[in-house]
Design a protein around this nucleic acid. Structure first.
Length: 901
RNA sequence: GGGAGUUUAGCUCAGCUGGUUAGAGCAUCUGCCUUACAAGCAGAGGGUCACAGGUUCGAAUCCUGUAACUCCCACCA
């Protein structure tokens, strides 16, 4: 009875995954507490939106984090991966408003408190979904540390930070042009505006001169804002208009007089070369308005409807786009429209609500960024913080050098309310609690009571909490006495690696760096790994609206979680967009299956005892011995490579390297070489068996960060394990210099390479002649002294025999009807047992000789070139000479075979 | 408009400071139900390294120009 029958032929993850994840949690393997004897390794998750559900971007991102964390944990570090969610003020508030609307509740009819009650209820009900999904992905987060950016402590940190910055005079209130989202009724940041190319119309409107005949024609896409016009601007060098600068025109319909001014900003080539200046509704116009000290007339209200100020009662309260139509019609009827052209323009829309953004003047809170940016700039410049790939350094620098002040306020309720209080005389006090605010107020006037204080209605931008994330998750803002003198913070901060999408390099990464230096005088992390964007096969970004994103949970069901994790990481180097194809997951699944079956094979074997040991042939034992030596070297060399690749964060290269080691070297060569001779007894000697288990165990360990579930299952079954043991916390293999040194002496790796090349040649010859692998062929090695020691790779002869089904002979002469093969410098003859087509064989050899001669000419071209000898590095010249010798040996051998045909 | 990046096999990507006859995986083709795995085994074919110049003994690699694509920033009404 073999173990074979106990194990399924196909890897079935359905029960394993849940079982092992539960075990890991129960054993608290992922929980980390400060321990001065262990080196910490910390990652804070980029907190997904609390409204979020897992998408392919998360899959990529979190798989990478888990690989890093699991590896660090196995390397004995105190690995701490902090998870949590972001309150995402706009997105969440939008969802809650929509949910309420479905129930027939209008936000307008709710008080702030009522609304927040609904919002919290919603959060409690739906907020944790994504975290549960991350567990499915196998993420080894310390769930006991899960945070939410709006929980009390976290919010307190945000408020404290605000007060700190305010007191440093870095926060100010200003009238600014902001991107107004009329649907969300909030200002949004530049980064949240998406420009879309849309078809629009360009209206050519006449503004008649106040004196004399004629008019100036202005091209605009926004006729509904003419009531907000305060000037017409032309380029000072524009010959057409030079004479009229300083004159006045009348706004059609409104009949208001405005001046013609000149400024170099205006492009004479565009439209008519005349621009209407509407400071309240265009950023550039606003700038010009400031320069010329022009009035600002805001003709729109917060809903995007025309306001009282527009001066035409019938339009007041009407939607901006409706008014555009109406006013166009009216202008046309009155003859003010010269023409209307079709026009393509970039229109800013809100990332969150999709509405067309309205540039709007409003009072907002701003954070001065210039000083904060400097340390962040330096940190990356000096390499104190490293970005992977480094190509992002440039983008980062340029952005920070031109950083603009950060608009902190949002006209929403879901978020941290701005801790600013207005006094009856409109003075402002800022403090973290109403009590302290009152105290401050009373310094101004002792008679003030709490009732005199009116708190600002706005909340802070979501990023005002996320930028503190690496600090606040470790309670870095809490007083020392509440946190055992910042025990967690001091131990886990600065964190090690941050893994995130390049889209939020500025929103989030740069700001976290600023916050780190500003509040703690220390960087928040050392390395930033920027992932690529996950796209579909056609290169389109995956999005809900396109419906081109697969459901990650379904994928994991179909291909196993390990399979999908592998699929995500195959060929997705840092910073490169990933063109996702389910084929990749299939490949991952196949790999899992391969691993599964290699394990089955080993499980089938029976270990020899004292009695049976002697029934095992020496040949089998010898093969085992050589294969073990060879593979151990191979493993060490790979391990060396992996260290290097991990250091450079080349995660997919790590995966591909391990994949090849497992599939090609371990399965195709090692296991095939070591396999028992007798399929009845399946006997292997003790030594081979023990070493095979060791090798398998090491392989599972280096695979574990990528494929946590299958590796745990197999690791648990390799040998008996005790409760509380796990591959999660097993020691990651360390480099063994001894094995590598031994190899330099004995050349296992190189000998194996030549031997396996010969194997391929033999198989190829067999294959091309259509000879079944079952037929044993004769392989004769040319060997003058008939001395095994003369053959460089003699240790591997047994393995060659096993892998190719040949009988190995020695002779000086080439047997009749044999095909010549070269293994390194060793000439071999393979008898295929069929008539060799002499002419065909001659041609083959001749072709090979021609190639060798061509190559020889190239080498000689170098070696006979004086300049090459003068300029090339000695080791290059040496290499060329070696090539030449090898080339010549091969030529001699082939010429001999040609003669003997 | 400004800046950055990319372009290597049918596809996705390696190729570090110039020095093997340019590599891998997938896909394709051929042959195999060979005593773990057909989600597999064995083997093969496939590239003027985007294009044009230049530097060099030597260029996928460095320089210049051109083209295509991508991203970021700005936003000509």
């Amino acid at each position: 009875m073999t173990a074979n029958s106990e194990l399924d032929k196909v890897y079935d993850p359905s029960e394993l995954e849940g079982k092992w994840y539960a075990y890991w949690l129960a054993q608290k393997f992922f929980e980390a507490t400060p321990n001065s004897e262990k080196e910490p390794y910390t990652i804070v998750i980029p907190p997904p939106n609390v409204t979020g559900i897992l998408h392919m971007g998360h899959m990529l991102n979190n798989t990478i984090q888990d690989v890093l964390v699991r590896k660090a944990r196995m390397q004995g570090k105190n690995a701490c991966w902090v998870a949590g969610t972001d309150h995402a003020s706009i997105a969440t508030e939008a969802k809650v408003v929509a949910m309420l609307a479905e129930k027939g509740i209008d936000k307008k009819n709710l008080s702030r408190e009522e609304f927040l009650t609904h919002a919290w209820a919603w959060k409690e009900k739906y907020g944790g979904i994504i975290l549960e999904q991350l567990k499915k992905l196998g993420c080894s987060c310390d769930w006991s540390r899960t945070r939410f950016t709006m929980e009390e402590d976290m919010s307190k940190a945000v408020i404290d930070a605000f007060v700190h910055l305010y007191n440093k005079n870095l926060i100010y209130r200003g009238i600014r042009m902001v991107n107004w989202d009329p649907k969300g009724k909030t200002a949004i940041s530049d980064e949240e505006v998406i420009f879309e190319t849309r078809n629009a119309k360009l209206y050519f409107i006449q503004y008649p001169f106040t004196e004399g005949e004629g008019s100036i024609i202005v091209a605009t896409v926004r006729p509904e804002t003419i009531m907000g016009d305060v000037a017409i601007c032309v380029n000072p060098n524009d010959e057409r208009y030079k004479s009229i600068v300083g004159k006045k025109v009348r706004i059609p319909i409104l009949n208001k007089e405005i001046p013609i001014i000149a400024d170099a900003y205006v492009d004479a080539e565009f439209g008519t070369g005349a621009l209407k200046i509407t400071p309240a509704h265009d950023k550039n116009d606003y700038e010009i308005g400031l320069k010329f000290n022009l009035e600002v007339i805001d003709v729109l209200d917060e809903n995007g409807n025309l306001s009282e100020k527009c001066g035409i009662p019938k339009y007041v309260g009407k939607d901006r786009f409706a008014v555009r139509k109406d006013i166009t019609k009216e202008l046309e009827e009155l003859g003010f429209i010269q023409k209307i052209e079709e026009y393509q323009t970039q229109i800013g829309t809100s990332e969150r609500t999709g509405t067309v953004i309205e540039p709007k003047l409003s009072v907002q809170w701003f954070l001065k960024m210039k000083d904060l940016a400097q340390p962040a700039l330096d940190a990356v410049e000096t390499g104190e913080i490293k970005l992977y790939p480094p190509k992002f350094n440039n983008t980062y620098r340029i952005w920070l050098e031109n950083v603009k002040d950060w608009c902190l306020s949002r006209q929403l309720w879901w978020g941290q309310r701005i801790p600013a209080y207005y006094l009856p005389n409109n003075e402002i006090v800022v403090a973290d609690t109403p009590e302290k605010a009152l105290a401050l107020a009373q310094e101004k006037n002792a008679n003030y009571t709490q009732n005199d204080l009116r708190q600002d209605e706005d909340v802070l931008d979501t990023w005002a909490s996320s930028w503190l994330w690496p600090i606040s998750v470790f309670d870095g803002f809490k007083p020392a006495e509440e946190t055992e003198n910042h025990k967690d913070f001091n131990y886990f901060y600065p964190t090690n690696d941050l893994v995130t999408a390049p889209e939020i390099l500025f929103f989030w990464v740069a700001r976290m760096i600023m916050a780190g230096y500003e509040f703690k005088g220390k960087k928040p992390f050392e390395n930033v790994y920027l992932t690529g964007i996950v796209r579909d096969k056609l290169g389109r970004k995956m999005s809900k609206s396109l419906g081109n994103s697969p459901d990650p949970i379904e994928l994991m069901k179909q291909y196993s979680t390990d399979g999908v994790r592998v699929g995500m990481l195959f060929s997705s180097p840092a910073g490169n967009d990933l063109r996702f194809d389910e084929k990749l997951c299939e490949q991952g699944r196949n790999f899992a299956n391969k691993i599964w079956n290699s394990f089955r094979l080993v499980k089938m074997w029976n270990v020899a005892d004292e009695n049976t040991e002697k029934t095992i042939s020496n040949a089998q034992k010898q093969r085992g011995e050589i294969a073990i030596n060879w593979f151990k070297v191979k493993f060490q060399q790979t391990l060396q490579e992996l260290t290097h690749l991990y250091q450079e964060y080349r995660i997919s290269d790590v995966l591909v390297t391990v994949y090849k080691l497992y599939w090609d070297d371990f399965c195709a060569y090692y296991l095939e070489a070591v396999k028992p001779e007798s399929m009845e007894t399946q006997l292997v000697d003790k030594h081979t068996y023990a070493e095979t288990l060791n090798i398998l165990e090491d392989l599972l360990k280096i695979l574990h960060p990528f494929m946590p579930f299958i590796t745990e299952e197999l690791w648990q079954n390799i040998r008996p394990r005790k409760e509380g043991e796990s591959i999660c916390i097993a020691d990651y293999p360390v480099l063994n210099e001894e094995i590598l040194a031994k190899n330099t002496k004995e050349n296992f790796a190189e000998k194996g390479k030549i031997a396996f090349e010969l194997v391929t040649e033999i198989r190829n010859a067999r294959n091309s002649k259509g000879i079944s692998p079952k037929v044993t062929l004769k392989l004769t090695l040319k060997n003058a002294e008939n001395n095994l020691e003369n053959i460089y790779f003699n240790d591997f002869l047994g393995i060659i025999k096993k892998l190719t089904n040949v009988e190995i002979l020695f002779a000086d002469e080439k047997p009749k009807q044999a095909q010549s093969l070269m293994a390194g410098n060793q000439e071999c003859y393979l008898e295929l047992g069929i008539m060799v087509n002499v002419e065909q064989e001659r041609q083959n050899i001749q072709k090979e000789l021609d190639n060798l001669h061509k190559f020889k000419m190239r080498i000689l071209g170098n070696l006979q070139n004086e300049k090459f000898i003068q300029n090339a590095k000695p080791e290059i010249i040496e290499a060329e000479r070696k090539k030449l010798t090898e080339n010549e040996t091969k030529i001699v051998a082939l010429e001999e075979s040609l003669k003997s045909l």
